Amino acid sequence: MTGFARSEGHWQRYRWTWELRSVNGKGLDFRLRLPQGSDHLESEVRKRLSGRLSRGNVQVALSIALAESRLELVVNEAALQAVLDLKARLGDALDDRPLTMEGLLGMRGIAEFREAEDSDEAIETRDRMILDDLDLALDRLSAMRGDEGEKIVAILSRQIDRIETLTEMIAADPSRAPATIAARLSEEVARLVEAAPALDSERLYAEAVLLATKADIQEEIDRLNAHVAAARALLQQGGPCGRRLDFLAQEFNRETNTICSKSNAVAVTAAGLELKTVIDQFREQIQNLE
């Protein structure tokens, strides 16, 4: 989700620049900085951003400058008429000098120079071209985010491979072999009967079998394998998948915690702890993915 893009354009006396910055975020959040007088563009800008991006904190800045100034003299007709009326009413009683252009321009509020305004049609043309350059900046931002995404996908694929390998190690651990489980149950029952001869060995054995069944981790292993397949499918299909992968990471962690809690073998516990480490790394990388 990280990226930067810039685009520039010009038309007649206007020049503008778009700058887009994107960083990681759980959702999609825009921070717009538009120049004064461009607030009418905000709705369309947000629409175009939402249509191209689905996740990340995105800062969008637009600057517009005038390549050349075009001044016009604006006369305050009401103020001018008031001065002329006053002159006509008082005549030469106060001042017998005639009014001159220089004198009128020197009066505050009679006339002033200001930037000439463009027609509505010209403004619409300019705005359309500015938004076209926003699309260009979005193309560049998406390309940069895509390049980053490909690198992250490669890392995630390796982590998924490691999760699958560790799951296979747990599934193949000798402690899960039926003969090993039977021998362990027999030893535990024999130890209890030796410590308390009054106990019913057959009842103890039945209880031990029940506990062993509850401690079996085959379901967790099957679900881990299913999640591995689902994660690979998401990465292969392309497109935004960060939220769905984040959900799978939670499921990976849930199954691994259960395996560690049920484990009665050192090797299985060690593999489970390494699984948790890889899953944490997997979740960290997913935060960088759209």
Score class of each variant (00 low, 15 high):
Met1Trp: 03
Thr2Pro: 00
Ala5Trp: 07
Ser7Arg: 11
Gly9Ala: 09
Gln12Gly: 01
Arg13Leu: 08
Thr17Glu: 12
Glu19Lys: 01
Gly25Asp: 11
Lys26Thr: 06
Gly27Val: 04
Asp29Gly: 02
Leu34His: 07
Gln36Gly: 14
Leu41Ala: 03
Arg46Thr: 04
Lys47Ile: 02
Leu49Asp: 09
Ser54Thr: 14
Val58Pro: 07
Gln59Gly: 14
Ser63Asn: 14
Ile64Asp: 06
Ala65Leu: 10
Ala65Gly: 11
Arg70Ile: 10
Arg70Lys: 13
Leu73Arg: 11
Ala79Trp: 10
Leu80Ser: 07
Ala82His: 05
Leu84Ser: 04
Asp85His: 09
Lys87Val: 10
Arg89Cys: 01
Gly91Thr: 01
Ala93Lys: 05
Leu94Arg: 05
Leu94Thr: 05
Asp95Trp: 03
Asp95Ile: 07
Arg97Met: 04
Pro98Ile: 04
Pro98Phe: 02
Met101Thr: 15
Glu102Thr: 15
Gly103Ser: 05
Leu105Trp: 10
Arg108Met: 13
Ile110Asp: 04
Ile110Asn: 05
Ile110Gly: 06
Ala111Glu: 09
Glu115Ile: 08
Ser119Gly: 15
Asp127Pro: 12
Asp127Ser: 13
Leu131Asn: 07
Leu131Ser: 10
Asp133Asn: 15
Gly146Glu: 08
Gly149Arg: 09
Ala154Gln: 12
Arg158Asn: 11
Arg158Trp: 04
Gln159Asn: 05
Glu164Asn: 06
Ile170Ser: 07
Asp173Leu: 03
Ala177Gly: 01
Ala179Met: 09
Ala179Gly: 07
Ala179Pro: 08
Ile181Ala: 09
Ala183Pro: 02
Arg184Asn: 14
Val189Asp: 07
Leu192Val: 13
Glu194Pro: 00
Pro197Asp: 09
Asp200His: 00
Asp200Trp: 02
Glu202Asp: 14
Ala206Phe: 03
Ala208Glu: 02
Ile217Glu: 00
Leu224His: 08
Ala230Ile: 09
Ala231Val: 05
Arg232Thr: 12
Ala233Ile: 02
Pro240Cys: 05
Glu251Lys: 11
Thr258Ile: 01
Lys262Leu: 10
Ala267Val: 11
Val268Met: 13
Ala271Trp: 01
Ala271Cys: 12
Leu275Ala: 08
Leu275Arg: 02
Lys276Gly: 08
Thr277Cys: 08
Gln281Gly: 15
Phe282Arg: 11
Gln285Ile: 10
Ile286His: 01
Leu289Thr: 07
